[in-house]
Write a protein that binds this DNA or RNA. Structure first.
Lengths: 316, 316
DNA sequence: CTATCAACTGTTACCGGTATCAAAAAAGCC
DNA sequence: GGCTTTTTTGATACCGGTAACAGTTGATAG
């Protein structure tokens, strides 16, 4: 394993010059820079992350905090993680996973990416000493990245209208969280544009809960209805309920999910869904926290990334 | 942040003694050890992982290599990851995720945990310079940890027999991999014990493939049949096929899955399944690779962990 | 009572980088 | 051209640990 010194010798410069080429290239004249880069390349040099972490009093570790029950963890977390990992990798950072607020303080890191934070978590978030960014909308001014939830269900609702479903109903998640309000807002806004009256029901985010809800209230849902669901889980339940009641998908009943990871494919018929750009969200989260760390905790703002409408078999 | 030196001063010993208390406690007399531990506790000392990595020429990073398509990634990987993370945490190691063989060599680490390795991967596995362990059975002598697949489907088959299903059929995954052979072996062995003749079908590991397969061959399956499925995905498809054909679950048809993460709960009826101890597998993987690293790459052998039969609604 | 040895503890040098400041070189100015 | 200012480069001192070896101590043996 070649070291900084090796490269320095090879290029006939001092260690510092090499270090600068890596971290502050603009401080070095182009000629020297080129020399050094060539030397690095010749020797196949890779910086030692532990050494740089030590010298610059960092850890090169970001913690990913998942404040959700492991058993109900959504499959899309895997994609999120991949995205995060990819983003961190590019800066030679590595990752630690944390599942409980109590483990957060254990061991060192340079910053946190936090997901699953609810309104009640803001108490301890405020006490964190390291910079953090959230995955998921919040209205407390914390930096976050999320799918553009509102846009997502605007797309969904618009599509249901375009496909000429007579009645368009929203099946939401029974939680008072910003992402849910945003999705509902997308639905409501779009319906209002056409002077239609919104009808919203809310259930727990479980396929079976959704299924039994629809079955129990089946009489309320006439044919030619499209269900805009706040999650693929719910959509899966709705599909099963319709099938159980003998409704015809997609002819008489349409179903549109939200998430677009895993479940939408396992379902039959495959779900029309709002696909979140999960991998990219992960990557962006990584970039944001790294930047925030580099800028000593400076505010980063909010980022909403547009989702895609994936048209499949559960709508006509 | 207190350092080793701070603790050393507080306890009136040298840095080395403190270091020894942390890494080789048995080399220090109990009295001193106590003194040091108290000092560490008083100061709330946490070792600096970067410094120790640098000094001992390690990186304190383990790479988790996932050789599978991100989109078909099983939800249980999340649990595996949690387990791995937990195991690594305990030794102050952190994690990097890698998805392609080409990224494996990029950046440094002390060892690898590799999953999704197929027979064809052994070529580059042999070339790896750092120690590694595999998640998943293999017959090439590589160290691995896996669920006891054979035992799993012994349990499943035995249960189907106990529940008095007349005919017991295995729906396997259409891949020539050890885990599949082991599951089939568990099924075959148990049936043979009762002088019953095995019937095995194999399909791709997709719910819809399984569904259409069962539908197309529906005439072959008389009532009073239990399907032992090699995965929950397949089980979900089988359940849907039976429902589509109007079969009664669990009275006339039983379905037993394999995995026990996520899908089994989303299904309706909830699946009877062989639940893999995924979290523990992950933890063990972490422990194994850490030990292997500590022992400079010494062989660790194979570990098979027993799964559990979870009895739910898809069997009578 | 001293020599020998084992067991424990301390000293020193170094792991591979980076920050800081000093020195040198280049540029600007009169 | 000489002097000041700015830019570029280099020397040095750490960052917080660990390995290797040296020194100390007490026990055991002769």
């Amino acid at each position: 394993m070649p070291t900084l010194s090796d490269v320095a010798k090879e290029a006939n410069v001092s260690k510092m010059t090499v270090s600068r080429v890596i971290n502050h290239p603009q401080q070095v004249t182009p000629e020297l820079r080129k020399l050094v880069l060539e030397a690095m390349h010749r020797l196949d040099y890779h910086p030692n992350s532990a050494a740089s972490a030590l010298a610059s009093k960092r850890t090169n570790v970001i913690k990913f905090v998942i404040l959700e029950n492991i058993d109900t963890t959504e499959p899309y977390y895997m994609n999120l993680l991949f995205g995060i990992a990819q983003g961190l990798q590019s800066q030679h950072f590595s990752l630690q996973l944390v599942r409980t607020a109590s483990d957060v303080e254990k061991g060192n890191c340079d910053g946190y990416i936090i997901t699953g934070a609810r309104a009640t978590d803001s108490a301890w978030l405020d006490k964190l000493e390291k910079p953090f960014v959230l995955f998921g909308e919040n209205r407390y001014g914390y930096d976050f990245i999320d799918t553009d939830n509102k846009l997502g269900d605007q797309l969904a609702t618009q599509y249901a209208i375009d496909r000429n479903y007579q009645s368009i109903i929203f099946i939401g998640i029974d939680e008072k969280e910003p992402f849910e309000y945003s999705r509902e807002a997308g639905y409501i806004n779009t319906l209002q544009k056409y002077k239609k009256i919104p009808r919203i029901f809310r259930v727990a985010n479980h396929s079976r809960k959704a299924q039994s809800f629809i079955c129990e209230n089946w009489s309320k849902f006439a044919p030619d209805t499209c269900f805009i669901c706040a999650s693929d889980r719910i959509a899966v339940g709705v599909v099963r309920a319709i099938q159980e009641k003998g409704g015809k998908i997609p002819k008489d009943f349409g179903v549109i999910g939200f998430d677009g990871v895993f479940l939408d494919q396992v379902s039959n018929p495959k779900l029309t869904t709002i696909k979140q750009p999960i991998f990219k969200l992960g990557e962006s989260l990584a970039m944001m926290i790294l930047q925030k760390v580099a800028q000593d905790g400076a505010q980063q703002g909010e980022v909403l990334m547009p989702p895609d409408l994936i048209k499949r078999e559960s709508t006509r």
